[in-house]
Amino acid sequence: MTSEIGYLAGGEQASNALPMIPRLAATDLACRRGDRLLFRGLNLQLGTGDLCHVTGANGIGKSSLLRVLAGLLSPYAGDVEREGDIGLMDERPALDPDRALGRALGFWNALDGGTDCTATYSAMGLTDLLDIPVRYLSTGQRKRAAMAALISRQVPVWLLDEPLNGLDRQAQEKVMELITQHGENGGICLIASHQDLPLDGLKTLALEEFAP
């Protein structure tokens, strides 16, 4: 397997990138938004290398599940156990609209330790966009930038909320490839998406089964 992404190339670097064995587990999880119970009794066990597809209709609680697992929402009931840092990519890329993309990404990169991300940016096709203010970028371009920010963090657990929305086919294939590589490197990836995901060994979590 060849890769343009720095931390994925070479066995030694890869083992440095994911020092601990990642784990993401939920027991008897329930989530309430407002006065509506979204899901209950949800159990989830994801270990190293696991890829999981969260499915369900609009408003069933896919994004809320991801936020609960990330620790951004407290669960109504149940527990979440996490091992390894969590990276969440949702519909908000957290990039300042008025800054040039390179500087907006550079802010997160500096917080994450300031490694060289040139390879990641070129892998996501962002090299020509780095001087353009984020507010002029299209939805797909922002999504690619958010993906680049996630990759360069080198965290073992990925939570992706609709990662394919707004992406052209080439970028979709790239994201699929990155998810596969992440799994092969021992990472965990949980994907909430309406689209079919052509990934090998993909588990499925149908949220309808846990609707109250």
Binding site: A70, L72, D90, A94, D96, R153
Partner: peptide
């Protein structure tokens, strides 16, 4: 809050 910056900072343990 709208941009999700605080969420991303929280994920980085800030």
């Amino acid at each position: 809050i709208t941009l999700g910056v605080f969420d991303q900072l929280k994920l980085r343990n800030v």
